[in-house]
């Protein structure tokens, strides 16, 4: 479903501040696979997602989605294959627009925009149905502006929007990091449900090692722009956070420096 072939990304290339953010990264993700990605700050996790989504183009290497070379396809064109939820709960929705307007933007994804009314009664019916499924009562608030919602509600809405039209790949960028633990747990429940129900391929970046091992089928650990650990199957099932950290130190001859990850585990 997704293939990265020896992808490199530099920031501030040819300056003193040059940083090699993603190094010769090759990766294949199968259809229906739910991959979690962990790593300390600056490991290249978010850069990886930005490369997949087209926010950045790689300096070298190729990126394929469903067999199609999308390496230089701009983000807004690539978007029809992708759904994405961000860490910042304001980024995945438009706060000044109403709930139904936000959903309509997602509903119309990949369609040519014209001078037709954006929202029909039929669409509203669909929105109510889908909102009812996430159980936050938002189906009764279609005309409320999203700015009035709580962070958790906004993130639930962003998640629903990202899964509209069953994207080929769902990208989750620490989408529970800015929520309180209880809300974050709820959003994770919703995430797994939506992924399972729609048989989505998903890549979730997280700081929470517990979440990384608990959810999904496969865990990647990144460090300095490389994937240093790739665990799945039986090995992953038995893996504890402690073992994961030990494996990391063995491989990289350093400690996994991530206060947030340790605190939240």
């Amino acid at each position: 479903m997704l293939k990265l072939d020896r992808v490199n990304k530099y920031f501030f290339r040819n300056t003193q501040d040059e940083r090699w953010a993603v190094r010769n990264l090759s990766l294949e993700v199968q259809k229906g696979e739910f991959v979690t990605v962990v790593g300390s700050n600056g490991a290249g996790k978010t850069t990886l997602l930005n490369l997949i989504s087209g926010t950045y183009f790689p300096d070298s290497g190729r990126i394929f989605i469903d067999g199609q070379d999308v390496t230089t396809v701009p983000a807004y064109e690539r978007a029809k294959y992708l759904g994405r939820v961000f860490q910042n709960t304001f980024q995945g929705t438009a706060a000044s627009l109403t709930i139904e307007e936000n959903l309509a933007i997602a509903y119309l994804k990949g369609k040519r925009k014209g001078i037709r009314m954006a929202i029909s009664e039929k669409m509203r019916e669909y929105f109510r149905e889908r909102l009812a499924e996430i159980g936050l009562g938002l189906e009764r608030r279609l005309k409320d502006r999203v700015g009035l919602l709580s962070g958790g509600q906004r993130q639930a809405l962003a998640l629903l929007m990202a899964t509209f039209g069953n994207p080929k790949i769902l990208l989750l960028d620490e989408h529970t990091a800015n929520l309180d633990p209880k809300t974050g747990e709820k959003i994770m429940e919703l995430t797994t449900r939506l992924i399972e129900e729609n048989a989505l391929t998903a890549i979730m970046v997280t700081h929470n090692l517990q979440d990384a091992l608990q959810y999904g089928h496969r865990t990647l650990m990144m460090d300095e722009g490389e994937v240093v650990l790739d665990i799945f199957g039986e090995e992953r099932k038995r893996m504890t956070i402690q073992e994961l950290l030990e494996r990391f130190s063995e491989l990289r001859h350093k400690k996994f420096a991530e206060d947030r990850a340790l605190l939240s585990s």
Binding site: S53, T55, P74, A75, Y76, E77, A79, K80, L82, G83, R84, F86, F90, Q91, G92, T93, A94, A95, S96, L97, I105, A106, L108, K109, G110, K113, M161, A162
Partner: peptide, 13 residues
């Protein structure tokens, strides 16, 4: 309102 969102939703801002 949100150019990032618009781009992720397949609209060229």
């Amino acid at each position: 309102d949100n150019e990032t969102l618009v781009a992720t939703q397949g609209i060229n801002p």
